[in-house]
């Protein structure tokens, strides 16, 4: 119990550091310090989590963390300044995939209705973030055309996909021990992410990445509900909420309407007369 208390106390500290970090990140003079504060909070939280009693073996943790840190650190150091936004998009997608992997384990380990429901939510949002971010990355780095990709009947296809996805989600919550529904949900949500981002033009990608970033926060938040982890909920909600605000600010700065950017795949194509 004492250990649990200590862990949660440090979590409070980490959450405070995240809040101050984000606050300072939004002012030019203190931005760099803000980023370091939030990194310090993350480090504290990771170190204290290793004291958790449910961790019985450390080999795989050590191996995965070292490999992850090497890959992430190397990519972040080597990337050219101009391609930083697409790297952020890639990192964001990877984070979303991590949340959805957690959700799958949480669901299989404890198929109670509440855990199943929040896990399904984390899985859905995490997967949409992953595949959406990959498309955004491909568009920004010009691996695929940056032009909006539209096909006729797209809005019907999207509507059908949403219905199928919701059905698979409900089926997964009701029958958590029948994995075919889970895998159907995984496939459908990945497809959803692709179809949501494809119709959006390359120039709008920063807004999309910011929005997907907000989603990955929400995915972490939902995973926090599944694992009953306070800090996951707090940090995820902070990123989710501030991400939405930032997306809105970015839209205004670019003279765009958020709903127009988001719903590109759900509208009939409007051709400019100019």
């Amino acid at each position: 119990m004492n250990q649990q208390l200590l862990i949660n106390f440090v979590y409070v500290l980490a959450a405070t550091l995240f809040i101050f970090g984000l606050k300072q990140l939004s002012h030019p003079s203190s931005a760099r310090r803000g980023n370091l504060l939030s990194a310090l909070g993350m480090l504290l939280a990771i170190v204290i989590t290793l004291l958790d009693k449910s961790i019985v073996s450390f080999e795989w943790i050590a191996i995965s963390m070292v490999c992850g840190a090497l890959v992430g650190g190397f990519a972040a150091r080597k990337v050219a300044m101009t391609s930083m936004p697409e790297l952020v998009s890639l990192f964001n997608g990877i984070g979303g995939l991590a949340s959805s992997a957690i959700a799958i384990v949480a669901l299989l380990a404890n198929p109670s209705p509440f855990v199943a429901a929040v896990s399904v939510l984390a899985l859905l949002i995490g997967n949409v973030t992953f595949s959406g971010s990959l498309v955004a990355w491909a568009k920004l780095s010009e691996k695929i055309s940056g032009r909006p990709l539209l096909f006729s009947g797209q809005k019907y296809a999207n509507a059908l996909l949403i219905v199928m996805m919701l059905a698979a989600a409900v089926a997964t919550v009701v029958y958590p021990l029948q994995p075919q529904w889970l895998w159907a949900l995984v496939a459908l949500s990945l497809l959803m992410g692709i179809l949501v981002v494809l119709p959006i033009g390359g120039a709008d990608m920063p807004v999309v990445i910011s929005l997907l970033n907000s989603y990955s926060g929400l995915a972490a938040c939902a995973a926090g509900f599944a694992l009953e982890n306070n800090l996951l909920i707090v940090a995820g909600a902070l990123v989710g909420a501030s991400g939405i605000i930032l997306t809105n600010i970015m839209c205004k700065a670019m003279n765009r309407s958020l709903s127009h950017v988001l719903l590109s795949g759900f509208q009939d194509v409007v051709k400019s007369t100019l």
């Binding site: 970090g21 939280a45 990192f91 599944a226 800090l231 930032l246």
Partner: peptide, 17 residues
């Protein structure tokens, strides 16, 4: 700011650990 918030969303690491 987007990138910094994105790093925080990696908090799911704690659950993964």
């Amino acid at each position: 700011l987007m990138s910094g918030a994105n790093a925080i969303s990696g908090i799911s690491l704690l659950g993964a650990l």
